[in-house]
């Protein structure tokens, strides 16, 4: 049976919309090679290489979106968004509010994120909590090709800015370029169900703010997104062998956050473990705790996230990022009483 890769699923969803919507342009650094299948079909007018000028071309995407286009802008890595983030934080995200709802910036910022291949702390950050902190932007983080395509379809119909984060352990072209570089025999913790899906993919959209309960369980709820979903599933399998029934929620979108799903699931189990590859403090895991408290729940709570700068050395990197051992320890902690 043939299968579709994560990045290919996203590219195909973009191609599908580009074929019917001439307002969609793709631009960013090296996109003609990176997205060569889009380039070969839609040509150099609609698939444009950009100079190494993130602040300019991300800012230009906002203006272009305001003036009738629907740009899909690529920023190679979430870490590089930092040099251009004014365009999102002060402009794209605020336009609808500033204009009293009369003007929007429909654009998608496609960004590779995440670690697990030893590239150091300036190339492996997740930053979705940092982005979702800003009102006015959607931030989505798919964990598999089907959701990735479905979320991209929604992003390309959304009326405001969307940051679309694709994890480098799931997108094979990124892992190949940055992690393998043509070498064989290297091991990466690529979750097979996250990296590829059966062909053909379903053609549906995945709505923003709709989490998916990917495993149900009555004793404990694991909440995650991106690669972390697969680590949570692995932990849930291991717990099942000990007779403990753990459920897993794949958030899929950080902003908007599916608070209803969180409250409903955790309300049933009373125990929650958040697996979040982004930074520990002031981020998604704290937001989830707040949302549960605000709903009147008092669950046992633990979180597995990235505590400091991601170290370069593989063994240090592995223990700095969430991993199945850390997830299991957190699960045992909330189950211990």
């Amino acid at each position: 049976m043939s299968s579709v890769g994560f990045a290919e699923a996203i590219d195909d969803a973009i191609a599908e919309r580009m074929a019917v919507d001439p307002a969609i342009l793709v631009f960013g650094e090296d996109v003609q090679l990176l997205r060569r299948n889009l380039y070969a079909r839609f040509g150099a007018e609609r698939v444009r290489n950009a100079p190494i000028s993130e602040a300019a071309f991300l800012g230009a995407a906002v203006g272009a979106a305001m003036a009738g286009l629907r740009p899909v802008v690529e920023i190679m890595m979430a870490d590089f968004l930092t040099v251009a983030v004014d365009a999102l934080v002060n402009h794209a995200a605020k336009l609808a509010d500033f204009s009293g709802g009369s003007w929007g910036a429909p654009m998608v910022v496609r960004v590779a994120c995440g670690g697990g291949y030893g590239d150091g702390g300036q190339h492996e950050q997740s930053l979705w909590g940092w982005l979702a902190h800003i009102p006015g932007m959607a931030v989505v983080v798919p964990s598999n090709p089907v959701d990735a395509a479905g979320l991209m379809r929604t992003a390309l119909a959304h009326d405001g800015p969307v940051v679309f984060l694709e994890h480098k352990l799931l997108a094979d072209n990124w892992l190949e370029a940055l992690g393998r570089g043509g070498r064989s025999g290297l091991e990466f913790d690529v979750p097979p169900a996250g990296a590829r899906a059966a062909h053909p993919l379903p053609a549906n959209r995945v709505a923003f703010g709709r989490a998916s309960v990917v495993r149900s369980g009555g004793s404990l709820t694991l909440v995650s997104l991106g690669v972390g979903v697969h680590q949570a599933l692995e932990a849930a399998e291991a717990l099942a062998e000990d007779g403990i029934s753990a459920g897993v929620i794949d958030l899929r979108s950080v902003s908007p956050l599916d608070r209803g799903c969180l409250v409903e699931q955790v309300g049933q189990t009373g125990r929650v473990v958040v697996v979040d590859e982004d930074y520990l403090r002031f981020g998604l895991s704290g937001e989830i705790a707040a949302c549960l408290l605000e709903a009147g729940l008092r669950p046992r709570f633990a979180r597995v996230a990235t505590e400091g700068t991601i170290p370069f050395a593989r063994h240090l990197e592995r223990s700095a990022l969430p991993n199945p051992d850390r997830v299991m320890r957190a699960c045992r902690q909330v189950l211990s009483s």
């Binding site: 191609a15 060569r36 299948n37 079909r41």
Partner: peptide, 17 residues
């Protein structure tokens, strides 16, 4: 396959790409 798909740029632009 992409270069030959229906709905896309003109033939000249595709062949240039």
């Amino acid at each position: 396959r992409s270069a030959l798909s229906r709905h896309g740029a003109r033939f000249r632009d595709r062949s240039h790409a």
